[in-house]
Design a binder for these strands. Structure first.
Lengths: 344, 344
DNA sequence: ACTAAACGCTAAAACGGTTTAGCGAAAAAT
DNA sequence: ATTTTTCGCTAAACCGTTTTAGCGTTTAGT
């Protein structure tokens, strides 16, 4: 019942030329192969007439390249990743590639299966924000000689390109800012898995800033929230932190997910921002500007992350010889807004 | 430099059996083809040993099916679509399909190219929130016998499946609610292109509700905002609507994009919600609950849209014979929150 | 006039699977 | 003892491209 697809063969037969010739012409290699202008014109005309659509699967099979890139993130519906996906889509399209987007839910096993799937689909390369705790998974990619680029999270000692943020300093700045504004009982809300480099580094930045400025060991002010049930977990913890002998006066939310959960809980509990609790978030959301007070944040250069990583990856794909890997660290930016106004 | 890929041939040769046999076994058709248990075990063992990864391109080429579905939306970074994409991804994966996601920026020409690309990539079907003004583009798909399902937007008279929302009644309810709360000078902020069915119907619902309850022709209270520069356009219009002889007292935002822009402008202008201006939005965002006051909205059943459309599409893909199309309309839900509190 | 080069083009192999048709040996049926 | 059936398996075609190697004819060179 499928419609009859028009292939090179149809064109070549109806023009009584070879498939080879048609292929050459349609790939704009007519001139370099000395096909007469006249014939080229006939081929193009016939292709248009028959409404020829090249079968990219066949091409991929023959060429050993699919012009496809896998993008693996924890959740494409998280605005941080959907924005990244969008920038990458534009950049990839511009360079003749298509994106295959997959969500892992921070589940290492799921991630493993997705990577396998991507390999089977013959992607030319992979960009990944991994949720693995160890790098062993990536040996497979090394073995298969499939180029890949880490974004947001990476592993020390793994020889692969990466595009990440200076999370440590971003977090340090955020906490420093809170302290400068007069807050000192600051809780950090982190989301699992906390072993991934980005979260780990943000936590380290938090601990370090707290030690520097308050001489305190802030480990008990570090709250780990389970990714699977962020909302309820957060609510419970916030309630605890507010009703203890020494209640907190500020929150450092380690990413946008947990920030939203915090804000939701705070509203629900009728807590006033920043009077009762100041808050700053690692990740900037456009909605942070439509909240009153607006929410301070550490803003990541999303477009740069996307463009750089696509660029790195395609370069590796294009270089047949073992390529040099780049590890790029971009700087986040402190956005000061109302949610961290000077403590009264 | 690419690693040597393991193919069926490697397995078959190292076991001295035929490729056919190996293919059968690995597709779990060993039993039905009477391959001995013994041999099957050897094949599986060798496949594991060699770390065999089937080449899905080759399979797709031979089978004429790629187990790939194209998803075409205006912008994957819009949370409405990224959520849809996520639900679809899960449902598609469950059924052995992979999603190819593309953004059109509401540009019909771009959409056309993307559809062509998807056809070339041999997708088995397409799910699309189209930005076309006329259905002619879809004749191509009909001709190529590629199943497709409209979501969110459809065309009257085009014989294809669709999964949409009752936009007219959703909008009517939203406006009705505003009026019941005591507002009557209500502006609708719509985003271009306004000719797509969903926006059109929401506008119709708005006009109709206004006529029903205020006996007014609300056409001059309908603001069209250009998709390419929503923020600035909106700001300008809001300023105008507030500083005219009869300023508005409520806003009906026709989708989440324009709602965010409205809220941004209102905050910037120091307008108090809902005291000065009430607002309700078609589309519910999780952040609407973390804003004070929380934002009322018309919430769409995103998961149902996603699952239903994937289901419809895969059914059409699986049925070789001309399949019956379904046109499904789902009901949105009014979420009453603080931004539309009774007028004082 | 003969060789060499240039021109315009083609046949066939290759990519890695799936599928069709059918093979030879052993077992069962007559 | 012969025929038939079953069993376990295989050769070859096929999907739609790209690519390699080389074909015959005309033109240019000497």
């Amino acid at each position: 019942m499928r419609a009859e697809k028009i292939s090179l063969k149809h064109i070549s037969e109806s023009l009584s030329v070879s498939k080879t010739l048609v292929s050459m012409v349609l790939n704009n290699k007519g001139d370099e192969n000395g096909i007469s202008k006249e014939t080229q014109k006939r081929v193009w005309a016939k292709a248009k007439e028959l409404n020829y659509k090249p079968n990219l699967m066949a091409r991929a099979l023959r060429m050993g390249r699919s012009f496809t890139i896998g993008l693996v993130v924890s959740d494409i519906s998280n605005s941080f990743y959907s924005k990244i996906a969008r920038f990458m889509e534009d950049e990839a399209t511009k360079r003749g590639f298509t994106l295959l987007i997959c969500s892992t839910d921070e589940n290492p096993e799921k991630e493993k299966n997705l990577i396998r799937m991507l390999i089977n689909r013959q992607v030319d390369g992979i960009i990944i924000s991994t949720s693995q705790s160890t790098p062993e998974q990536f040996i497979i990619l090394q073995e298969q000689k499939i180029p890949y680029v880490f974004i947001d999270r990476y592993f020390d000692g793994v020889d692969a390109s990466s595009v990440c943020i200076d999370n440590y300093n971003g977090a340090f700045q955020a906490v420093e800012h809170l302290i400068n504004q007069g807050y000192n009982k600051i809780a950090a809300f982190a989301v699992t898995p906390v072993y991934v480099s980005s979260i780990r580094q943000r936590i380290d930045g938090f601990i370090s800033a707290m030690k520097t400025y308050t001489q305190e060991d802030a480990n008990e002010l570090l709250i780990e929230v389970d990714y699977q049930d962020i909302t309820n977990n957060t609510r419970k913890k916030i309630f605890e932190m507010l009703n203890c002998p020494e209640p907190i006066d500020a929150i450092f939310a380690v990413n946008n997910k947990v920030a939203i959960a915090c804000l939701e809980s705070l509203i629900e509990l009728g807590v006033s921002i920043p009077k009762d609790i100041a808050i700053i978030c690692f990740d900037d959301l456009e909605v942070f500007r439509i909240i009153s007070p607006q929410i301070s944040s550490i803003s990541q250069p999303i477009e740069e992350i996307s463009r750089t990583s696509i660029d790195l990856l395609i370069n590796e794909i294009d270089s047949q010889f073992g390529s040099i890997h780049s590890n790029i660290t971009l700087s986040p930016k402190l956005m000061v807004r109302g949610s961290t106004a000077k403590k009264m």
